[in-house]
């Protein structure tokens, strides 16, 4: 098999570290259903205009 054909990483998933209720978890697979839903609902908080506030 040549280098071109040789594939690495099939079946290997990306790790996604998230914080839920204070703890980091390395994979979303171990979150319970409520926590999964909460994580997927999160919106980002804009940090623009910071200087006006301080």
């Amino acid at each position: 098999m040549s280098e071109k054909e040789m594939m690495i990483g099939e079946g290997i998933k990306f790790e996604r570290i998230r914080r839920i209720t204070g703890y980091l978890v390395g994979t979303l697979d171990r979150f319970n259903n409520g926590k999964r839903a909460e994580e997927s609902d999160r919106v980002k908080h804009s940090v623009s205009g910071s200087l006006e506030h301080i």
Binding site: E3, M7, I8, G9, I12, F14
Partner: peptide, 28 residues
């Protein structure tokens, strides 16, 4: 983090370093 190429950061669909998708292979 992509355990295959070691990239740490934000990965949406495609790994910015090696270009593979979740669970896909990438050529040697």
């Amino acid at each position: 983090r992509d355990p295959v190429c070691g990239y740490t950061g934000i990965i949406d669909e495609v790994c910015p370093r090696c270009g593979r998708r979740d669970g896909e292979g990438v050529s040697l």
